[in-house]
């Protein structure tokens, strides 16, 4: 199977869907790059180069550079989706959704419910998220819990190029508004990705490793760290199951609970803030639904309740590390009443 980068996988997903469905179009700040300038018209392909090359194939009507006005173009995406198109919108950083939050959580997310089930709003909001690039507090957050909180939205956090392509195709074909978050430190990650179109469904966790001692649940970039911790722990005979729920909403709690039937111990790794994050959400649901399966207290590995710092030393201390995951697993495995 061909190996491709995360970036290339996402680009392919959009390209294939734009070929398949004339209603699909992309827009955002510099998704082409160079509009109105004298030079190259596809200068950027998005701030991270993910949409590069789409302009040449699909032209400026379907690859639309926008002014820096997130409220207007995210709201316009909602309006276009409600009237029959399937916009794929790029927001450079999820942090910027603060300026257009109303369009997302009061408008797009709620049309269907408010209008008694009549509205269909098939839009995808792609944004980068995550720490690790020395980008500090306004360009590094992992805000997927904010959107997970809102009924009407679906939220995707892929962890591999394969999943990224299949999940984005699913997102574009999905009839509900989808927040699709891409970890900015993962764009060059490589993995096997088929050339053709395929979907990875929402609400189905991936199980990346089976082990009998502990279940580690992780999202996005934390999945790789969980896998590394699991490999290290295996050298000491501690076998971990690693679960990547892939989507925070819907959430595949069944698969997590299923693995707990064997492991009885749960460690949740979350790059989001610790309060009302995915770690606390999953811990809460498991405590409610599967308390009897637990042999040890649930361990959460998260950043501190603090914004993302700038200095490399501070950022390193901030992001959940392989060592912290390992330590949490050892704590769970070694726990006695």
């Amino acid at each position: 199977m061909p190996r491709k980068s995360f970036r290339q996988a996402l680009n392919e997903a959009m390209r294939l869907e734009m070929r398949r469905d004339p209603r699909v179009f992309v827009m955002g700040e510099d998704v082409a790059g160079g509009k109105g300038a004298s030079g190259e018209q596809d200068a950027w392909g998005g701030a991270f180069g993910v949409t590069k090359g789409l302009l040449a194939e699909f032209g400026p009507e379907r690859v639309r550079d926008t002014p820096i006005t997130e409220s207007a173009f995210v709201g316009a995406a909602a309006g276009a989706a409600m009237t029959g198109l399937r916009p794929v919108v790029e927001i450079m950083f999820v942090d910027f959704m603060g300026v257009c939050f109303d369009q997302i959580f009061n408008q797009a997310a709620k049309f269907r419910y408010m209008f008694g089930g009549k509205a269909v709003t098939p839009m995808v909001l792609r944004a980068t998220f995550g720490a690790g690039t020395r980008s500090a507090s306004q360009h590094s957050q992992a805000l997927y819990p904010l959107f997970t909180h809102i009924p009407g939205l679906k939220v995707v956090v892929p962890s591999s190029p394969y999943d990224a392509k299949g999940l984005l195709i699913q997102a574009i074909r999905d009839d509900d508004p989808v927040i699709f978050l891409e970890h900015k430190a993962m764009y060059d990650d490589m993995g096997e990705v088929p050339d053709g179109a395929y979907v990875v469904p929402f609400g189905e966790a991936g199980v990346l490793r089976d082990g009998g001692d502990v279940t580690i649940v992780a999202y996005g970039r934390m999945v790789g760290r969980a896998m590394e911790a699991a490999a290290r722990l295996a050298r000491d005979g501690i076998e971990a199951t690693v679960v990547d729920p892939r989507t925070t909403s819907p959430l595949d709690i069944d698969t997590i609970v299923e693995t707990l039937e064997e492991t009885g111990r749960l460690v949740i790794v979350d790059e989001a803030y610790p309060r009302c994050g995915m770690a606390s959400d999953i811990a809460g649901i498991v405590a409610e639904e599967a308390f009897g399966l637990l042999k040890a207290p649930i361990q959460k590995v998260t950043p501190p309740h603090a914004p993302v710092p700038y200095a490399p030393e501070l950022e390193a201390a901030y992001i959940p590390s392989v060592e912290k995951i390992e330590a949490a697993v050892r704590k769970a495995v070694g726990w006695t009443r």
Binding site: P194, G196, A197, Y198, V199, V200, G206, D210
Partner: peptide, 17 residues
């Protein structure tokens, strides 16, 4: 039947066509 076998079949079935 282990999980990976099921996942692989699902992956195949989820390809367009």
């Amino acid at each position: 039947v282990e999980r990976r076998m099921i996942d692989d079949v699902l992956r195949m079935k989820r390809r367009d066509g």
